[in-house]
């Protein structure tokens, strides 16, 4: 499916990962897709900004609802550790040699323990890279719906506008909640996207 995504649309999918990581969340949800849509100058971004949606506000709303992950080890920690003779950079580089870049700073996803019948199956050893955060079922659904929106509009590509239409169509994720809580009508937003597409055509 991803081969049909335009470059900006791919950037949104990748950007959603960055958004999730910055909030120290362990999943990429619809809210991170929305935040990624708001960066850049795509049709989706223009429509959202024209409707008064701004990344800072969305980010604040998301954090108000779900919070951010635990504080990572920051510069102040590094300095405090240095004062007692501990070199955080040295520790970090040793850890990264074994577990990959960013290993010490990423929220770690632990597999659910296998139970019952599955307990004796050999465990799958995951790659050590913690950098790829999984998408929530809703976020996956949004991407599937973006394909459907593109097909419906008889477009041969999937752009950021289709991702936004998918987000609206899905309608129940955190992104949709944040938008409706801000007083926006999803139906109107949808119309704005379609109008913008007409104008661009």
């Amino acid at each position: 499916m991803f081969e049909r995504f335009t470059k900006p649309a791919r950037d949104v999918v990748i950007g959603a990962q960055t958004e999730a990581r910055e909030l120290r969340h362990r999943h990429v949800g619809t809210e991170h897709l929305l935040l990624a849509l708001l960066r850049g100058d795509s049709i989706a971004c223009t429509v959202l900004r024209d409707a008064g949606v701004h990344p800072e506000q969305v980010s604040a709303d998301v954090q108000a609802r779900v919070g951010a992950g635990p504080d990572p080890l920051g510069q102040a920690d590094a300095e405090a550790l240095r004062s007692i003779g501990i070199d955080l950079d040295a520790i970090r580089s040793k850890i990264e040699e074994t577990f990959g870049e960013g290993a010490l700073d990423q929220p770690h996803v632990c597999e659910e323990p296998r139970r019952g019948l599955f307990r004796r199956q050999p465990r799958h050893v995951h790659s050590a890279s913690p950098r790829h955060l999984p998408f929530t079922p809703r976020a996956k659904k949004v991407l599937e719906l973006s394909l459907r929106e593109a097909l419906h509009l008889k477009h041969s590509y999937i752009g950021t506008e289709h991702i936004l239409l998918g987000l609206i169509r899905e309608g129940e994720g955190l992104a949709a909640k944040v938008l409706t809580d801000a007083g926006l009508s999803l139906d109107e937003l949808r119309t704005h996207v379609l109008d913008a597409l007409d104008r661009a055509a």
Binding site: R26, H27, V66, V109, C110, T136, E172, G173, L174
Partner: peptide, 13 residues
């Protein structure tokens, strides 16, 4: 540690 799951499995994201 066992309760640590991918965040979001319990919330509607």
């Amino acid at each position: 540690h066992a309760g640590r799951r991918p965040a979001g499995t319990r919330r509607e994201a």
